[in-house]
Structures are given as structure tokens and as C-alpha cells.
Design a protein around this nucleic acid. Structure first.
Lengths: 188, 188
DNA sequence: CCGCGCTTCCTAGAGCCTCTAGGTATTTGC
DNA sequence: GCAAATACCTAGAGGCTCTAGGAAGCGCGG
């Protein structure tokens, strides 16, 4: 009997792919096992339970997102950086919906602090905002607005919530411009 | 044997309450039946299946949200209306998380068109935005930005995604102010 | 090259979930 | 008060998570 050669690493990666296919909340250890040609009980040697598996995907995905966002803003500043950041963010969310959803999953704060990817994502955003001359607490407020707007947009878009009237990508670019205006004229 | 006196109406309403307690995605016909002191199979006389039940909650919730938003903006205009709208929106989402999640559920477009609540919600937003002197397609873009920002904010907040650094309500108010600035100086 | 132990994978099964089929009992409407 | 409508039931199939314990493949020292 040939073995499938599972490892925690491979299982998590396959789970992330599965999440992109069927949605982060719809992944199933049974389906994952089927993909490996293995029984579901076998996965429990590599993964503690479904919760932990989701956590693993979240870490993986946060790292990948951080890579993309980091590459997007590298060598840019101000509006250029904002636009590049926003587009890279949206692209990731649309292209890897399961992984993206994972980055937004509720995570134990203590554990979150150990996630390199999540930390880098926060850092990237703040670096961008500092270029607008913002200081605390405006920095936090502006960061939360950007995060909310970007996240809200891709969630609604991914959910098919925008109807067919106007191309989302156009609305998105305009929204980013409007946010740029808001950042430049941040209410004092 | 006394009967529980179920109707589609009562079942849906109880399901909405259950959703507020345990989360929209975590509602269960079994748990719902338990609440009525009835077997889960009995609910299938009143509700087609779990999908349809969720749909019913979505319709109910959209109506309730529309009531709140309508009341909030009544007699107001401009920044006043925006602030009132935003606060009512956030309040609903925090107070009735299950119902709120339902309003954001993916719904068949044909069915969505028949939902009074969803229609009123779109209408309310547009009325508010027209006061800023916006016209199509800016109206659509600005509407999508507001929806994204509000939705994103309450989702992240409800998910505990904002840490403990600064009170979300303060960030929210500042974000709304910033959005007001963006709407007033909408990029041409 | 042979057995020893570690790890991988298995079967069995409990518990919870959705949903169907078909039966019994209560209520309503005539 | 009787018949039709309907509220609710039991039984059961099928999918899910997760535990417990057993059997095969693999890598190592002798």
C-alpha cells in the first residue's frame, strides 16, 4: 500500500487551496482527505483539529498577502503607494478568496502576536500612512478606515453584492482616490 | 400533547434571534427546534430547508435595518444625515450581529429585487449622497465606498479585529468625518 | 539483511447535523 | 360532531468532526 506522504505543511497548503475553491468556511477534513486519497481520520495525525487547520491557513495566507503588499509599495510613496497597495490588496482577495478570508478570521490575540505575516501587514499600512504626515491617534483612525474600506469592498464584491451596473474595478479606483483626498485633508 | 403552535413567521423570527446569539452561519435547525421543544424534522413543515430559512432571516433583517436607517436620516441632510446614518448602521450591526450578517448574505439577484428592505436601504443611501451634489457614475462609486467602509468597519470590529488600543467608536466617528470630507471634495 | 520502533494510515464508532418518507394526533371549518 | 387540513412524530440515510486503538510501511542499528 503506497503512502500519501502527508506532513502538516502539505496538509495546510492543500487546505488553503481547497479554501480558495470552496470558501474558507466550507473546508472539510473529509474533503481534504479525499483529495489526498486518504481517510479523514488519518489527517488527525498531522492536524489537531479543524480549528487548528484554519489557523494554519490564516498564518500562511497572512504571509503571502504581506509579500504581495510589500512588493507593491516597495519604492513608492504617497498616492502612488496607496494605489499600488489597494490594488494588490484587492487582487489578492479576488484571486485567493479562501486565503483572504483566512487572514480575516478571528484569532486568539496572544497567537496573533506571533504571526509574522499579520505583523508585517500592519507595519506596511502604517508606513504608508506616515507619509501623509499623520500622527497618533489619527494614524490608528486612518488605518482603520483604510482597512475597513478595502476589506468591505472586496467582501461585498466577492459576495456578488455590487450588481452588474458598473465595473467594480472602476468604482474601486475612484474610491481609492477619494480616500487619498480624505487622507490629505484629514479632519483635525 | 400540547402543540408549539409554529408558523413560518414565528420560526423565522426565532431563527433571527438565534442567529444574533450564535452567529448567522452557526444557526442549526436542530437547535432552533430545541428552542421550541420540538423535533428538528417538524420544522420542515414550515421551512423548506436551512437555505430558505437563512433567506427569510435576510429579508426580515433588511426590513428592520431599513427602518432604523430611515428613522436616523429623517429630517436631516448633509453631514448630519451621514453621521446619523453611519451610527445607526453600526449600532444595528453590533446589537443584532446575526441579523446584520444576514443582510449581507449572498442572495439570488432575482429574489433580491423583490426584497422591500434591501431596496429601501439602497434608496436611503442614494438620497443621502445626492445631497452632496453627486451624479452618476460618481453616485454609484461613492455609494460603494460608503457601503464598503461601514460594512468593513463593523465586520472587523465585530470580529474583534481592532485590538484594544483605541475605542472603535472614536475611530468610527473620525472615519465618518473623513468620508464626509471625501464626499465634499469628490475627485473629478 | 533483519528485526525494532517510529510514524503513517487504517477501521470502528460516537455524536451532531440536514433532510426525506410516511405515520399519528389535534384543530379547524362545515 | 365529522372530515379535511395541518402540526408534529418516528425512523433512517448520509455527511460531518473527532477519539481510540490496530496494522502496515519506513528508516535505523546491529
Amino acid at each position: 500500500m503506497a503512502r500519501a506522504g502527508l506532513t502538516a505543511e502539505r496538509v495546510t497548503r492543500a487546505a488553503a487551496d481547497l479554501a480558495d475553491e470552496v470558501g474558507f468556511e466550507n473546508i472539510t477534513l473529509t474533503a481534504l482527505a479525499r483529495g489526498f486519497g486518504v481517510k479523514d481520520a488519518s489527517l488527525y495525525s498531522h492536524v489537531k483539529n479543524l480549528r487548528e487547520l484554519r489557523l494554519g491557513i490564516a498564518m500562511l495566507a497572512a504571509d503571502e498577502l504581506a509579500d504581495r503588499l510589500g512588493a507593491a509599495v516597495a519604492g513608492r510613496a504617497g498616492k502612488d503607494a496607496l494605489v499600488a497597495f489597494a490594488r494588490a490588496y484587492r487582487e489578492f482577495a479576488l484571486e485567493r478568496p479562501g486565503r483572504y478570508a483566512a487572514t480575516q478570521a478571528r484569532i486568539d490575540p496572544a497567537l496573533l502576536a506571533t504571526s509574522e505575516g499579520h505583523r508585517r501587514n500592519v507595519e506596511n499600512t502604517y508606513a504608508m500612512l506616515r507619509a501623509y504626515g499623520l500622527e497618533e491617534p489619527d494614524l490608528t483612525d486612518a488605518g482603520r478606515l483604510l482597512r475597513s474600506a478595502f476589506h468591505g469592498f472586496v467582501v461585498i464584491e466577492g459576495n456578488g453584492g455590487f450588481g452588474h451596473a458598473r465595473k467594480p474595478s472602476e468604482s474601486f479606483d475612484r474610491a481609492v482616490e477619494a480616500l487619498h483626498v480624505a487622507l490629505e485633508n484629514w479632519p483635525g
